[in-house]
Amino acid sequence: MSGTSEVLLRVYRYDPSNGGKPRYQNYRVPTFRGMTVLDALIYIKENLDPTLSIRYSCRMASCGSCGMTINGLPRLACFTQISELRSKYILVQPLRNLPIIKDLVADLDEFFNKHKLVKPYLIRRDVEEQENPREQYRQSEEELERYVQFAYCIKCALCYSACPVVSTDKSFPGPQALAQLYRYYIDTRDEAREERIRIVDGAHGIWRCHFADSCSQVCPKGVDPALAIQLMRREMMFGPSKG
C-alpha cells in the first residue's frame, strides 16, 4: 500500500450489544490508484480497528454483499473507487430502510422475504413437470430480450435502500421484488401470470410505487427496476401482452 495521499473516512458505528447508541468514527486511510471504498474499509479493519464490522465477498460487484451508503448514496463498496467520489472526506453508513445488525452490516431478512414473496422461479401448471421437467423450454431471442435485463439483479438491496416509498411503507415489496415479479411474469416459460398479479395487486403492492426512479439510478447492474414496475402495471391495466 504505497499511497502518497490519504482520505478521511467517517464511518457509522453501531453495536447493539454495547448500548446500541449509534456514533461516527473517523479513520485516516492512505490511498492508492484504483483503491475502492471496500479496500479502505479492509485497511481499517486490518490496520486500525479490528472491531469494525463489514460484509463483503466477491470484491467484483457480483455477489451484492457490500452494499452501503457512501457519501449519501447507496453503492457497492467494491464497485466505488475513492477517486470517483472526488472528495478527501467520505461518509460511510449502512444501507437505509433496513435494520442494522452491527456497524455497516444491514439485516437483509425483510428484503429477502419480500423477494421470496413474489415467487422468483418458473412455475408450471403441471405439478409433475414442475418437479421433474421432461424437456427444454425453448425461447426466441426476442422473448429473451423482454426479461433478460431484469435477470441481471444481484440482490444487493441498493434499490431497496434508495426507494422513498419503502422508507415510509414497510408493507411495500420494494423495487427489487417487483422487478423480479415482472422478470418471471413476462418469461414465456412461466405459467403463473394470474397468481403473480394477485401477489402484488393491492394498495401496498405495485400500485404504491410513485416512480421516483431512484432504484434505477443506483442499480450497479443496470437492471432498471422502475421500468419493470411500470411495464408490469401496464400489463395489469391492459391485459397480458402477446407471447
Binding site: 448514496l73 434508495a162 422513498p164 410513485h210 416512480f211 421516483a212 426512479d213 431512484s214 439510478q217 443506483v218 422502475a226
Partner: peptide, 8 residues
C-alpha cells in the same frame, strides 16, 4: 438521485 427524484 437524478431528475426523476426531483420530480417526485
Amino acid at each position: 438521485y437524478g431528475l426523476e427524484r426531483w420530480s417526485y
